[in-house]
């Protein structure tokens, strides 16, 4: 869980960085060029296979862990322990992960499938490049329900990361109190900033900022 989790955290950094190109205010040209590089260059294409494998492994491990752990207490308590000692989101990683999975299916259908399979229109500046930017406009502009679903996906991701980021390092054996403090602080910052940046993307299209 921890290794695949950290791998997916690294992916989020790349993803949020590239997507931030939508805010270049150039009608999506920089974003489309970045997307073209990711789709055409051999290195990101090989990494993409790793990414799918990472996602799949994380999902399978996650469900297996959740179901195995749930089965370890056949008879539960009449009075639940609740928040006496742990955070709700630490105990809800299975649920949060499932919500993110549902979001991911929608997200892949929105952007990955047209990019790789069904095809996208040509970019205005270069007919050899896809116009992924206009696809984002199409998906988000005037489509409040989709924007809300994307924001909810980002909120689930934020809670998932708030536990997952620091937990991954504990699982790998980080015992130094100085570094645990540093990782926890870094994890909290990451869990807020990255999902917030992602959430601002559909909001920006909906509000007409880009």
């Amino acid at each position: 869980m921890s290794l695949t989790g950290i791998f997916l955290i690294l992916f989020l950094i790349v993803h949020v960085g590239l997507n931030a190109c939508i805010w270049a205010n150039d009608g999506g040209e920089m974003f489309n060029k970045a997307a073209h590089f990711m789709g055409a260059n051999v290195v990101p294409r090989i990494l993409e296979i790793g990414l799918f494998a990472g996602f799949l492994l994380h999902i399978i491990q996650g469900f297996a862990l959740e179901f195995q752990n749930r089965a370890k207490r056949k008879q539960g308590y009449a009075v639940a322990m609740g928040n006496k000692g742990s955070k709700w989101y630490s105990r809800s990683m299975g649920l949060l992960g499932t919500l993110i999975l549902l979001f991911l299916i929608m997200h892949i259908a929105h952007f990955w499938v047209p990019s790789r399979i069904t095809g996208l229109p040509e970019a205005a500046y270069n007919p050899n490049h896809h116009d992924l930017f206009s696809e984002m406009v199409k998906v988000f502009e005037g489509n409040l329900l989709v924007v809300i679903l994307y924001v909810l996906g980002c909120i689930s991701l934020a809670w998932h990361l708030l536990h997952g980021f620091q937990s991954a390092f504990r699982t790998l054996g980080l015992t130094n109190h100085k570094y645990i403090g540093m990782i926890s602080a870094l994890g909290t910052g990451f869990s807020i900033i990255v999902p917030l940046a992602f959430a601002m993307m559909p909001i920006s299209f909906y509000a007409g900022w880009v």
């Binding site: 195995q68 752990n69 322990m81 000692g85 742990s86 105990r91 536990h163």
Partner: peptide, 11 residues
Amino acid sequence: GSCTNTGACEA
């Protein structure tokens, strides 16, 4: 079961 670092044990 397996540990998922919720911290309830320590508490």
